[in-house]
Computed example of a mutant assay.
Amino acid sequence: MKKINIGGVPEHFNLAWYLGLKNGEFKDENINLRWKDYFGGTGAMCKGLRDGDIDMAVILTEGIIKDIIAGNKSKIVQVFVKTPLIWGIHVAQNSNYKTIEDIKGTKAAISRYGSGSHLMAYINAQNNGWNLEKDLDFEVIKNLDGAVEGLTEGKADYFMWEKFTTKPLVDNGVFRRIDNCPSPWPCFVVAVREEFLESNKDDVKTILNIVNNTTSEFKDIPSIDRMIANRYEQELEDVQEWLTLTEWSQENISKATINKVQDELLALNIIPEKWKYEDLVEKL
């Protein structure tokens, strides 16, 4: 049985992978798929791919494109979630900040440089007409627990993270959400290390086929809303709202999307140049 390591965030988006593992669907195809939770998000997964700790990752689109251009020898093989990620913009409950304008020029908590929380801070700044050099400042906090500590203790002023993941922290009075910032493209893709992909294409195809069968019928799974609410400690009505807003994909990323992401990252000086579609994407 072939052992293949995959990483992803421990969030509701990735339940389809858990269900496939729980039901033994990968083992039925002689694949020992080992899932690793990355609490540090995209930046940590990029490092995992670079270091060979994982072979595959379910990762933010903008984060992996930036890191491939920066030297990560991986390729995008499919879009996993085709709808945008809704980033909540959070401050500490007792903060004086009430609006987006209030946090202009203050310090953003980010999991690490090159992470989604870092890149989306630039998107949010651009959306609001801020000066990208003067109005952005960062404090690295590693993960969600670090953000709670950072904002509560005043080491940072605001924090951007997926709205529904952080909703329990808003509900219990740790954070206050002052606005939302949707990503301008499909949020999650599947990326694979090039070296691994070269000799394991059929296995990658098999893995994708299994998860795609689950995601294509995901919303029809009986009591899926209750399962998500229980597993990820979320309110049922929040999960139901999230399900109405989220669509999975079984297709590869388009040239138009790759261009759009690169145009945005280039305009923000996050990448030094644009790459060809074929240098970022592998068609299986």
Rank of each mutant, 00 (worst) to 15 (best):
D37N: 14
L15G: 01
N213T: 06
G41C: 04
G154W: 13
N96F: 12
F196H: 06
E235S: 07
A44H: 08
P272D: 12
I59V: 07
E153S: 14
K98E: 12
N213H: 07
V211I: 15
E278G: 01
Y18N: 12
G24A: 12
W130Q: 07
L49R: 11
E101H: 12
M56G: 08
S74H: 01
T83Y: 05
L243G: 07
T106W: 11
N5S: 10
L266C: 07
Y277F: 15
E153M: 09
K75T: 10
K219A: 07
E233N: 14
W185A: 06
I89K: 11
F13V: 08
L208F: 00
I4M: 03
M160N: 04
T244A: 13
K255H: 05
I54N: 02
G114R: 01
N180M: 11
V79M: 05
N96P: 01
I4R: 01
G63L: 10
N180V: 12
L245T: 14
L236M: 14
V58E: 06
I210W: 03
N124Y: 14
P182D: 06
R226W: 06
I68W: 11
N143E: 05
L33E: 00
K283G: 01
P182I: 15
G150Q: 12
S254Y: 05
A191T: 05
L243D: 02
D202E: 11
A121I: 08
K66Y: 03
D202P: 00
R176M: 14
N96H: 13
A147M: 09
D145I: 04
Q93K: 15
D225Q: 15
L151I: 13
V192N: 12
A256W: 00
L144K: 10
V91E: 13
D51F: 02
R231W: 03
M1D: 09
K167N: 02
T246I: 14
W161M: 04
E237S: 07
M160P: 00
G71V: 05
R34E: 05
W248D: 04
Q240P: 00
W275R: 13
D67Y: 10
D279V: 04
